[in-house]
C-alpha cells in the first residue's frame, strides 16, 4: 500500500507540476458548464431540478479527456527508460499500475468535486432528487475508472503516446456507443449481449438513480481486465 501511495503522489505531482491538470480541469469545467447552463438551456427548460443534462455532457467530455490523461502514463516511461528505474526499485508491477490508476482517478475526482456548485445551484432552484445526483457522480467515477484502465492498458503496449491515445479512443468508442447501436439494431441473444456490453446502458441506469450490482460488476470487470492486461504487458519482458 505504501509503495502505491508513493507512486500515486509522484504521478499527481507530475500532473500538477505541468499545466496538464489545470488545462484538463478548466476545459472540463468550461465545456460542461457551457453545455449545462448556456447552450440548449436544458437545465431551465426541462421543468424540473435535475443534473441529467450535466451528466450527459460529462459522459462525453470524460470519454475524450481520459485517453489524453492516460496516454503518457506508461508509454512515456517506456520511451525514456524510467520504467527500468522504477521496476528495479522494490515495487511490483501491480503497485506501479495501481499507483498510476489512482493518480488519474484522483484528478477526475477533483474535477468532479469542482462541479459541486452546479449541484448546489440546482438544489436552490427547486426540489432535487439527491439520490440520483450522488449515483450520477458514482456512475461518472465508475465510467472514468473503466476508461482509465483501458487507457493504461493501451499506454502499456506501446511507447508512442499518440498511438496509445488513439487506441484508447478506438477501444473506448465500442463501449461508448457502438455496442449500444448494435444492440438497438440486432435482435435476439446477440442483441442482448451487445446491450450488456454497452457502457451507456449501465451508465444511464446508474445516473437515473438505480444502483444495480449487475452494473457495478460490469464496470469493475472492465477495470480489472484493463489492469490485468497492463500487468501482463509489463510482465511480458520476462516471458521467454
Amino acid at each position: 500500500m505504501k509503495q502505491i501511495g508513493i507512486i500515486t503522489k509522484r504521478e499527481l505531482q507530475a500532473i500538477f507540476d505541468s499545466l496538464m491538470a489545470y488545462i484538463t480541469i478548466i476545459v472540463f469545467l468550461g465545456l460542461s458548464g457551457f453545455f449545462t447552463w448556456l447552450y440548449g438551456g436544458d437545465v431551465f427548460f426541462v421543468g424540473q431540478a435535475s443534473m441529467q443534462s450535466f451528466f450527459g455532457i460529462a459522459y462525453w467530455t470524460f470519454f475524450f479527456f481520459i485517453p489524453a490523461l492516460t496516454m503518457k502514463l506508461i508509454a512515456e516511461e517506456k520511451k525514456t527508460g524510467t520504467l527500468e528505474i522504477l521496476l528495479t526499485k522494490p515495487v511490483t508491477d501491480w503497485q506501479i499500475i495501481w499507483g498510476k490508476f489512482l493518480a488519474t482517478l484522483l484528478l477526475i475526482i477533483i474535477a468532479l468535486a469542482l462541479t459541486l456548485p452546479y449541484y448546489i445551484t440546482i438544489w436552490n432552484i427547486g426540489p432535487i432528487d439527491h439520490g440520483a445526483v450522488w449515483t450520477g457522480y458514482l456512475g461518472l467515477i465508475l465510467m472514468s475508472s473503466a476508461y482509465i484502465s483501458i487507457g493504461i492498458f493501451t499506454s502499456s503496449i506501446t511507447n508512442n503516446q499518440i498511438v496509445a491515445f488513439l487506441l484508447a479512443l478506438c477501444i473506448g468508442i465500442f463501449f461508448h456507443i457502438i455496442f449500444g447501436i448494435l444492440a438497438a439494431s440486432i435482435s435476439g441473444v446477440p442483441g442482448s449481449i451487445f446491450n450488456y456490453l454497452s457502457l451507456s446502458t449501465h451508465y444511464e441506469s446508474i445516473s437515473r438513480g438505480v444502483v444495480d450490482s449487475k452494473d457495478i460488476i460490469y464496470f469493475l470487470s472492465i477495470i480489472f481486465l484493463g489492469l490485468i492486461g497492463s500487468e501482463a504487458v509489463l510482465a511480458k519482458r520476462n516471458i521467454n
Binding site: 509503495q3 508513493i6 507512486i7 509522484r10 505531482q13 507530475a14 507540476d17 505541468s18 525514456t80 527508460g81 524510467t82 527500468e84 528505474i85 522504477l86 528495479t88 526499485k89 522494490p90 515495487v91
Partner: peptide
C-alpha cells in the same frame, strides 16, 4: 542504468525524495 533515465520534469530534490521513499 545505461543512458541514465530520469524524470525530466522533476526537481532534483523531489526526485531524490521519491527514490528514497520507494527504497524504503
Amino acid at each position: 542504468p545505461e543512458n541514465n533515465p530520469l524524470y525530466q520534469d522533476m526537481p532534483v530534490i523531489d526526485y531524490l525524495r521519491f527514490s528514497a521513499e520507494l527504497q524504503g
